[in-house]
Write a protein that binds this DNA or RNA. Structure first.
Length: 764
DNA sequence: GTTCTAGAAC
DNA sequence: GTTCTAGAAC
């Protein structure tokens, strides 16, 4: 056993009072477990014992029982213990979790780093204690990661830290290095991006690309237990849940240093139709009003929990300016313990007046921790918001109320002339007055927390009710504007959908949002504004529906000239006599993909004008979808007659590059010189690809299809679609898939997602 | 040095 | 969607 202890700096007495802990490390070979232990042990004020199975037997590998025995004796001596072994499967760690007791907490530190990184470290390392060197490392790491089961609090951990990139690891190192003998750490699960799915994540570099899709892997192609939830970010400075970094503009990431946001996907930035309005609110009363943070965090979490059911697609975000703010970490821990949906409520570090411009987080409503006179000035959030909003906010506030009593809130629509509106997209400010515990401020409660808590509860209730009233009003207005659009379709051609939205009766508010939207369009599209305007098909401009006429951007998109080819074929197949065309029917055209990404790759193209992509599909298209599927299936079966070894998959890209709804019928060999890049691969092998059978089911049941439209799906780590092993680049991946005969993942074998020759059904 | 990727242009 | 190519990665 390694006794990496540092006895020099602590007195015996201290150790006796202190509670030892067990930290179970989890991670593949090369994930840095031993290094982690060494770093902590070097700088910690505690006595640690590192129990390493690789070396426990006089420097050689030992048994699990030896590890347990040594851990128990270390704990008896009051020492804290690192369990340094892979521990990737639940069963492998269960006995170590049992080391916990009322006196001994068991923590998990998960070094869930990219497979690529672990592999390269394992390969490179020489003289590693576990003797896992050389070329076999890749195979071993891949195999282990495929069995990975991420830990859950329910296994018996009081605290779990997920580290998915180097900065997470640094944060965990800081946490445990500074974890003194008498300190306690908040309980809960920290830093995991998506607890329930195993989304593969991109190999992008920090500042160049964003990271984990928050929700995109939930479809059939994500496999429980697959080694997928791996982040390749190397420098992300965001600790405790890095998702929000995906929202940040490049220059903002440096400033937003802490966030926990498993819920906000890049769609919040892009403003896709699935977004809901977001209320950003500061912690009320805990700053200048000196309200106790523990009590305040209880109330925030309790009130958030109460409002969860009423939120619909709206979201709440607690904002604080400083990284490592006590109130944020308390709220995070308590929200995690209560299993509050992290998609609907999360925390964010940043300036509440610059959430969009600097943080990339679009919050249409922000709350202000106001003073009772509703006046600018003072300090903190109140001063910041009044400053950022300019005199417009003061004027608009006066129209609504002259003063506030503690525990109440007032909703103020923000004029579009306010910079906070034009730059940040804020439509409303809600002033909230919380209880005051500061004797130097008016209405001090003098330490009466019974009353204080009541008032703070009331304050949050008023705030959330105010927000919900805005949400429901806006939803109604967008319905009305939608009705109006339907009545006046002639006004829309030639404009982006901002045109129709200007007909809405909401006046100022609408214009303001349109400003943001245009900003986004100009960022997203490389073409000129003119191009944007003209390339949106006029038949689509009137199609803005109730959903996409909401606060956020519609699904409508601009198509470049190069993206029109399929549309032209669909409209006039007879003019395209080229040899790609296979079949022309009343509703569909079948053609070979011009750039096939597999031995067989066909497109079944709808001839319906105005149906550009999966996002446009509604219940009235159900029969068409079934026809497309049936035609695709017919062709797949024809090819299977010729070559029984083929396997087909039928489906749609969540966001196609080419206009005009088309079904891909693609053989799963992916044997094509034209499959050249990560986007090609991931567009057919991640949740970005929506199986036709699932789409039909969704349209039938819900009236629309789920779009896994997060760009990050397309830049995820390259993994074999059969065995899910990770590969560093396209050539290596292709070389692997040409030989891989692993069975397809179960999810693909279900529900006829794969189409096989009858003779091939048992062993694809 | 070569291989490979990612972003811009089309 | 592809092509081109700078520059990162090896």
């Amino acid at each position: 056993m390694e006794m990496d202890t540092d006895d020099t700096c602590k007195a015996k007495g201290e150790e006796e009072k202190a509670k030892p802990i067990v930290v179970i490390l989890m991670g593949a070979p090369g994930s840095g477990k031993s290094t982690f232990c060494e770093h902590v042990i070097r700088s910690s004020a505690r006595s640690w014992v590192r129990v390493c199975q690789d070396t426990i037997n006089n420097g050689k590998a030992g048994t699990k029982v030896q590890c347990l025995t040594n851990a128990i004796s270390a704990l008896k001596e009051g020492k804290s213990v690192f369990i340094d072994r892979c521990n990737l499967e639940k069963e492998q760690r269960v006995d170590f979790v049992k080391l916990g007791s009322p006196q001994v907490e068991v923590h998990a530190v998960v070094l869930d780093l990219p497979a690529k990184l672990c592999i390269s470290r394992s390969v490179k390392r020489t003289g590693h204690e576990g003797n896992l060197q050389g070329g076999k490392a890749a195979a071993v790491v891949n195999r282990m990661l495929q069995k990975k089961e991420l830990p859950k609090l329910s296994e018996g951990f009081s605290r779990i830290m997920f580290c998915q990139n180097e900065s997470d690891v640094q944060a965990a190192l800081d946490t445990y290095s500074g974890f003194g003998l008498l300190d306690t750490l908040p309980h809960g699960s920290f830093g995991q991006k998506k607890p329930d799915t195993k989304v593969q994540l991109g190999i992008m570099k920090f500042l160049k690309k964003v990271e984990a899709p928050s929700n995109a892997g939930s479809s059939a192609s994500s496999i429980q237990g697959s080694p997928a939830s791996q982040i390749i970010e190397e420098k992300n400075s965001c600790f405790g849940g890095k998702e929000t970094a995906s929202l940040l503009s490049h220059n903002a990431r440096e400033e937003v240093k802490d966030c926990q946001d498993p819920g906000v996907s890049s769609s919040t930035r892009k403003g896709s139709s699935s977004d809901g309005p977001i209320l950003a609110f500061p912690s009320i009363s805990t700053a200048d009003f000196q309200f106790d943070h523990e009590k305040a965090s209880d109330i925030i979490v309790e009130k958030v929990e109460e409002s969860m059911d009423k939120l619909g697609n709206a979201k709440l975000v607690l904002v604080d300016l400083t990284r490592g703010s006590k109130i944020l970490s308390l709220v995070r821990a308590k929200a995690a313990q209560k299993n509050i949906n992290p998609k609907k409520f999360f925390t964010f570090v940043g300036d509440i007046t610059k959430l969009y411009s600097e943080g990339g987080l679009r919050c249409t409503v922000i709350a202000n921790a106001a003073n009772w006179r509703l006046k600018p000035g003072g300090g903190g959030v109140n001063a910041a918001i009044f400053n950022a909003a300019g005199p417009d906010l003061e004027v608009a506030t006066k129209e609504q109320a002259k003063s506030l009593v503690p525990g109440s809130a007032v909703v103020v629509p923000l004029p579009s002339t306010s910079p906070l509106s034009s730059k940040e997209g804020v439509t409303h400010v809600i002033h909230v007055l919380g209880p005051n515990m500061n004797p130097h401020r008016p209405n001090c409660l003098g330490g009466d927390y019974v009353k204080g808590c009541q008032i703070l509860q009331k304050a949050y209730t008023s705030l959330f009710e105010g927000f919900l009233s805005i949400v429901s009003t806006q939803a109604k207005l967008s319905q009305e504007s939608n009705e109006k659009i339907k009545l006046e379709p002639s006004q829309s051609p030639g404009h982006s959908k901002d045109g129709p939205r200007n007909h809405s009766p909401t006046g100022d508010q609408k214009n303001k949002r349109d400003g943001i939207h245009e900003h986004e369009i100009s960022k997203k599209c490389k073409g000129s504004q003119n191009e944007v305007g003209t390339s949106i098909n006029s038949s689509r401009a009137g199609k803005v529906n109730a959903e996409n006429a909401k606060l956020d951007v519609s699904t409508s998109k601009a198509w470049g000239s190069w993206a029109q080819a399929l549309y032209h074929i669909a409209m006039h197949p007879e003019r395209h006599k080229d040899n790609l065309l296979l079949e022309i029917l009343d509703d569909v055209v079948v053609l070979n993909d011009l750039y096939p990404k597999a031995q067989k790759h066909l497109l079944v193209l709808t001839r319906c004008d105005g149906l550009d992509c999966l996002g446009d599909v509604r219940k009235e298209h159900l029969q068409l979808l079934k026809t497309m599927h049936a035609v695709g299936l017919k062709w797949a079966e024809k090819f299977l007659d010729e070559d029984a070894s083929l396997v087909f998959r039928l489906g749609y890209h969540s966001v196609p590059s080419m206009r005009q709804l088309h079904l891909h019928v693609i053989s799963q060999d992916f044997n094509s010189k034209l499959l050249k890049n990560k986007k090609h691969w991931n567009s057919f092998t991640t949740a970005f690809f929506r199986d036709s059978v699932d789409v039909i089911e969704e349209i039938s049941n819900q009236g629309k299809a789920t779009l896994n439209d997060d760009d990050r799906l397309l830049s995820m780590e390259l993994r074999c679609h059969r065995c899910k092993s990770a590969h560093p680049n396209i050539p290596r991946l292709k070389s692997h898939i040409s030989n891989c005969r692993a069975p397809f993942p179960t999810s693909l074998l279900q529900n006829d997602r794969l189409v096989l020759a009858p003779s091939n059904t048992n062993n694809p």
